[in-house]
Design a protein around this nucleic acid. Structure first.
Length: 260
DNA sequence: AAATTAACCAACCGCCAAAAA
DNA sequence: CTTTTTGGCGGTTGGTTAATT
């Protein structure tokens, strides 16, 4: 038996929000706040909506200082770099972009940026050049609230990025600490890894099983040295080929191999 | 001009973890 | 300590608009 639904599906309205509903929600929150209880809020606000729906509407659209419209080049770079480092942790990525929501960033990545980056990669391949995308200027901070798995794509990225240069081994593999300050890591190696992981991140996300293989044996068996990862390979269903050669992961397509 | 396809994005769904009971 | 509730997250869907045939 599954969990009880958070609200009566039959009596709540679904679909797009009307201006009237928006007004009701806005007015209520402006005068009463959220009250720390989204489930109870719609009833109090006179809305026939699920609490989760209200929360989403408020966070993604109605709350103040939401930025809509085109993303800047700098925002592109932040998204790409963070995606490479931590994967599809949209809430964390969005937290680095004032006024942007996780939904917004996610949509932007899935519909535009992913393709844009792919085209850049292919264009670079056609000219026999190394792909280059300047990472964002440090410092920015990664708040890490939800630790998933030490072998997840996110952890892989963090491990590779933050593990360079030694440090506490447990923290490298279990990045459940409250924050990781990237300004502490300005080594050329880290920047190179950040760039080279960019396209690995694209597919690593969907390849947890493969990633687990990539990272075996288990973390406890590894030292601080990133070179431990050399010569692990994987192939994604999309045809991209990933491998770690000790200098970072790389992506190839249609027989073209990039070396960093 | 109409039909079809692609792109975009708001919103929903289900899962997970933390908090509360 | 266990169970239930809630908030938050990421993946996905479906409606709308734009572009193409």
């Amino acid at each position: 038996m599954g969990r009880a639904p958070c609200c009566d599906k039959g009596s709540v309205k679904k679909g797009p929000w009307s201006p009237e509903e928006d007004m009701k929600l806005k007015d209520y929150i402006h005068t009463h706040g959220t009250g720390g209880n989204w489930i109870a809020l719609p009833t109090k606000a006179g809305l026939k909506r699920c609490g989760k729906s209200c929360r989403l509407r408020w966070l993604n659209y109605l709350r103040p200082n939401i930025k809509h419209g085109d993303f800047s080049d700098e925002e592109d770079r932040v998204i790409c770099a963070l995606f490479a480092a931590i994967g599809s942790r949209w809430s964390i990525i969005a937290a680095q972009l004032p006024g942007r929501t996780d939904n917004d960033v996610k949509n932007y990545w899935n519909t535009k940026l992913k393709k844009k980056q792919l085209h850049l990669l292919i264009a670079a391949a056609a000219h026999g050049q190394q792909y280059s995308s300047r990472p964002p200027e440090p410092p920015f901070t990664l708040e890490h609230h939800h630790h998933t798995s030490p072998t997840s794509a996110a952890s892989l990225g963090q491990l590779l990025m933050f593990g360079v240069g030694g440090g506490d081994q447990q923290q490298q593999y279990m990045p459940s600490c409250s924050s990781v300050d990237m300004s502490n890591n300005t080594s050329a190696a880290a920047v190179g890894l950040q760039e080279s992981l960019m396209f690995g991140g694209l597919e690593f996300q969907q390849q947890e099983e493969h990633t687990n293989n990539l990272l075996s044996p288990p973390p406890a068996a590894f030292g601080n040295d990133i070179m431990t990862y050399e010569h692990h390979e994987m192939i994604s269903p999309s045809g991209f080929f990933f491998y770690g050669d000790g200098a970072g992961a790389a992506a190839t397509q249609e027989g073209t191999r990039f070396l960093y």
